[in-house]
Design a protein around this nucleic acid. Sequence first.
DNA 1: TTAATAATAATAATAATTATCGTTAATATA
DNA 2: TATATTAACGATAATTATTATTATTATTAA
Lengths: 130, 130
Amino acid sequence: MKQLKYSRQRESIKSCLMSRKDHPTADAIYASIREEYPNISLGTVYRNLNLLVELGEIQKLRCGDGADHFDGDTSPHHHFICRECGCIKDLPLSDSEKINQMAQQYVDGTIDSHITYFYGVCGDCLRKTS
Amino acid sequence: MKQLKYSRQRESIKSCLMSRKDHPTADAIYASIREEYPNISLGTVYRNLNLLVELGEIQKLRCGDGADHFDGDTSPHHHFICRECGCIKDLPLSDSEKINQMAQQYVDGTIDSHITYFYGVCGDCLRKTS
DNA sequence: TTAATAATAATAATAATTATCGTTAATATA
DNA sequence: TATATTAACGATAATTATTATTATTATTAA
């Protein structure tokens, strides 16, 4: 059991993620942090993001565009992904537990959580395209 | 518009996918097809899988383990992923349209589909671990 | 039967992520 | 406070999954 040591880089990554509502990739976070810490390494960003996920302080999303996205909001909610621009928006979620229980009856095993990705076209892209 | 030409490799990939209930990765399919066509290339497997997805004949899944998985069943259903062994099991799905509509009210844009991944531990792993 | 071209195998290239490793910095303890 | 321990760092190499390139082969239309 290695004990955690404070690092200003990790703190910066976490507060960056908390302050924004988009769901940035590791690379986008890297670009953002570099404004304050120009020497930070991309590896450091990845390592800390994964660490924060393990600690349950942030959430990792795989919406299907190849890159992992990160979400500072760990409360249960859903995501909407625009097929056009790839933006990710939060959706409120009701009855998370109930949905797990409904699915549970079909499974030999235990369900503890679920992630739902909704796909479509966001309002901005709809207005652009037309 | 390029017209499609028959290929025995594509046919083999498709029937392989139809015949199995696990949700193999491109690499797993590659290994399987190689028994019949030892010279097939991994690139061919990827190209045909993506083509079949475009044609709507198969489905691509990103359950979160890094690799894409493929599913020969395109009817609407959900998936359960075991955190231990990574196996993917099908779940029946009711009210797919209703769920989209429920989410729709929170979105500026249009929702046309959704994918839900349930996470937990499968029965086999539960019995092994204990 | 031949011409046109889609699909192939082999391989190179790319993108995202993880691992390695010598150095730096945070923290525990003497 | 000084020192020892070791987590975390930056730089970079390696890995993994996937896509692109290209010369050749196979399918299909004329």
